[in-house]
Design a binder for these strands. Structure first.
Length: 417
DNA sequence: AAAAGGTTCAACCGCCCTTCT
DNA sequence: CAGAAGGGCGGTTGAACCTTT
């Protein structure tokens, strides 16, 4: 019970990690990747169980962790996400690059809960405390938290952590925007039985990017905060530093999309995604940008691709193969790198994720040819174009993986229905 | 200055799910 | 198909640190 096979027998160390242990773990994972966690302690020379190593790495040693106190924006985002996702800390963390589920959980339990209560908000229901108390009297004790009024609560009664930063208030105190009708028509997600929490989140997403909205929103004007890389289970930092100039740019020249999405948006590539060595050596690809042109994500005059991509990411995990024993290398452990080509072939950037799908079957059942055109460019101009044509076969596999994770979306929202 | 109480956060525990055999 | 193994997640704990008295 409880104990994992990796923890049995020999007396393993517990408790706080020493700097020496940290160093051993970092060295090992940096060189070889973690591979099978249960074998890490042995290979790294640690008297720890694999689980402990995993935890230490994920929560503390990972190079892409953002340390330090949470910003107001982050706190507000956590509150928003918690209203929708509940205590799904890992999913919340996925939307906060550089933050771990443990960290967020701790913050919630130690700080945010308290602040909400001080504001008269029940942290569990995200409703005013008085209302929550009323409901508790009226409903059975087993009734799960209803988020039906989440948006109302936040729009009319909350201005979180007010004080200096009025912009932050705008996020939650903004009017509850109506989702676009055309989005409702075109998005299968919107056709699902309406749940307020679901709509709330959609609304929030749309509001924060709706150019015509009268709401001033402090959310970054790009999509980066919604396109999380946290879930990419790529390997360790193999010596790459984050190049601030390395970013992906999504763009569309289709005017039909402009009412929902900006012309383009960009975000930094994760540090470990590296330019493909196979690319022509005379064409350095860093810095570079990748453009998606002529999105076919637009349908019914509106784009849902980004909304879909968001939901995709919400429950979607894609990882490059963990550190594996390479047959070519005679079983030698090879580092886990993700080349930019592999990255761009990921479901995340696949035609499927860019394609506007109407029904789940569309995604799961067939590989649609997306007209999304990739152009990899650097300062000197285009390097590679029309990548997608080489990816058709992989699209199907991607869709299969994708479908599995997409199935989690209803579950994620189901608790509120 | 020291004790008591409160807070934070790293780490562990136990369970669940997926994959492998 | 069943059981084992491994990974992941949320809840909980407890040591370290901070604040108050």
């Amino acid at each position: 019970m409880g104990g994992h096979s990796c923890c049995y027998k020999q007396k393993l160390r517990k408790g706080l990690w020493s700097p020496e242990e940290d160093e051993k773990l970092i060295k090992h994972i940096t060189r070889y990747g973690h591979g099978c966690w249960s074998s890490v302690p042995k290979l790294a020379g640690l008297q720890r169980c694999g689980k402990s190593c995993r935890l230490r790495w994920i929560n503390y040693l990972r190079p892409d962790l953002k340390r330090g106190t949470f910003s107001l924006e982050e706190e507000n985002l956590i509150i928003e996400l918690h209203a929708v996702l509940g205590n799904r800390w890992s999913q919340i963390a996925a939307q906060l690059p550089g933050r771990t589920d443990n960290e967020i959980k701790n913050l919630w339990n130690s700080s945010i809960k308290k602040k909400l209560r001080q504001k008269g908000i029940d942290p569990n229901t995200h409703k005013p405390l008085s209302e929550a108390a009323d409901n508790q009297e009226k409903t059975s004790p087993n009734t799960k938290t209803s988020n039906d009024k989440t948006s109302e609560t936040y729009s009319s009664e909350l201005s979180f952590f007010d004080g200096e930063n009025s912009d932050n208030q705008a996020i939650l105190a903004s009017e509850n925007p109506k989702p676009s009708n055309s989005l409702r028509q075109s998005s299968n997600l919107a056709d699902a039985p309406p749940t307020s929490a679901h709509e709330f989140f959609l609304n929030r997403f749309l509001a924060s990017h709706d150019q015509t909205s009268s709401t001033t929103c402090s959310r970054p004007s790009d999509f980066s905060s919604f396109l999380s890389f946290q879930q990419l289970n790529y390997g360790p930092n193999t010596g790459l530093s984050t190049n601030p100039n390395t970013n992906l740019v999504f763009s569309t020249n289709d005017p039909k999309c402009s009412d929902i999405v900006p012309d383009h948006f960009s975000f930094n590539l994760p540090a470990r995604i590296k330019p493909d060595r196979n690319l022509p050596s005379d064409n350095p690809v860093s810095p570079f940008s990748t453009k998606f042109q002529n999105w076919e994500a637009c349908d019914n005059g509106i784009s849902t691709s980004n909304v879909n991509t968001f939901f995709e990411n919400n429950g979607f995990q894609w990882g490059a193969a963990d550190c594996v024993k390479s047959e070519k290398s005679g079983g030698e452990l090879i580092p886990e790198d993700i080349k930019i080509t592999e990255y761009l072939q990921s479901p995340f950037l696949q035609g499927n994720s860019l394609h506007n799908y109407q029904t789940p079957e569309d995604i799961y059942g067939e590989t649609k040819s997306s007209q999304a055109l990739f152009t990899l460019t650097d300062d000197q101009g285009p390097l590679v174009t029309n990548w997608h044509t080489n990816q058709q076969q992989q699209s199907f596999q991607a869709a299969e993986i994708y479908s599995k994770h997409l199935q989690r979306i209803p579950a994620a929202f189901g608790q509120f229905s």
